[in-house]
Write a protein that binds this DNA or RNA. Sequence first.
DNA 1: GCAAAAGTGTTTGGATTACACCCATGC
DNA 2: GCATGGGTGTAATCCAAACACTTTTGC
Lengths: 231, 231
Amino acid sequence: MQNSDLKNFFTYSFSLDCVIFGYQNGKIHVLLIKRSIEPFENYWAIPGDLVYPDEDLPVAAERILYDLTRLKNIELHQAQTFGNPNRHPQGRVITNAYFALIRIDEFQAEASSWAEEVLWVPIDEVPNLAFDHNLIVNSTYELLKQKLTFEPICFDLLPVRFTLNEFQQLYEFAFDQEMDKANFRKKIKYIPLIAHDEKQQNVKHRPAKLFSFNEKLYHEQVKKGIYQFRM
Amino acid sequence: MQNSDLKNFFTYSFSLDCVIFGYQNGKIHVLLIKRSIEPFENYWAIPGDLVYPDEDLPVAAERILYDLTRLKNIELHQAQTFGNPNRHPQGRVITNAYFALIRIDEFQAEASSWAEEVLWVPIDEVPNLAFDHNLIVNSTYELLKQKLTFEPICFDLLPVRFTLNEFQQLYEFAFDQEMDKANFRKKIKYIPLIAHDEKQQNVKHRPAKLFSFNEKLYHEQVKKGIYQFRM
DNA sequence: GCAAAAGTGTTTGGATTACACCCATGC
DNA sequence: GCATGGGTGTAATCCAAACACTTTTGC
């Protein structure tokens, strides 16, 4: 979007910013893009842009993320809204954060449109970002940590088929808590998992059984009120 | 705000809607206002209005609530944002819900500005509302129920000084679960309360001790990571 | 004294923890 | 066979539910 267009677009504007968390090698990363346009040209930022006047928010979030990073088929969740009148130097832009969790190696982010580069940075090494994007990243990270406990988001970070040990490692990372192997398996007894016949390949020890999250059963049980997810 | 003004204000607009939950006689109510202006003239709605171009969101939420209902000194919490392009018949208005929980008898709601009447209705008797306000009320009620468990919001519903029995009754109502008196008292052992010397008055049985929530200690402990509230 | 609710201690069973041990695979 | 991690059973411990009991007030 060019500067001249922007001026007409404003009296108020509304944007969406996507905080994409990526998990790799036991570390949480955030996806950044380098802005090739003013304001904040050459700054790192999270991917975000204005919502079209007739576009619904979830649609816009997907569109914006794809336009800037070529990422698609990612489940985005609504987070907080940020509306400080001075957060955008060119006018009043209220923004709504959306977030997602993905495995970095399962997706291919690629700079596009006015994004000059894309970059995954560890959550504790995020540089100074454009606008109030540091605030947005930090607030959304806090929200993520809360949601990890009560919503089965953690499975977004595991391969579709995973071993119980991979699951446990993720747990220990996410909640920063070591746990006994046998006890972990008792703890997750009530989480609806599908046990596959398939086994781990190319390991030089006894291969582990593969599991996946039984999303269908989970939703059924939640709907019936039988079950509440809790890590 | 007049119709002619509205047209200039729009290309996009941004509003806030306040879902005020009130507790009385073991029932949750919602505060509605009757609109005296178009669109949806004479419809019931939740109090909400456009945000001024240079106004921050929390400030706007307080201002709007006061303008329409004369309620003030209420702690408002941000909830979800609703942005369906067709949610407002006169243009694109994205709205952010704020919510609060109060004891109805401690506040005096009074119609003001373009609110013709105010009304507390039980949450299960909410009529057809203007715009998508039924959706907003329902979504925010779900959010409230979630937050009750993990944030000490329930104390907004108790008198500043309350008996443990009042607390237990609220708990039983909020979570729809009966509980043994002795066990309830063990359960809340870790919630930071202040025990006062003062006692219940004018009861024809042994008067109960009065307590209040130790907000200061709570915030300190959360900050230090010692404590996580959980009901 | 009696009714009513406040307030507390004890027992019990189920869940969590710590820990030990066996199993399957590659080399 | 042995190194490596997968996988499981058991005893000890902790915690929460059930229940019984004592206390304090008004009438």
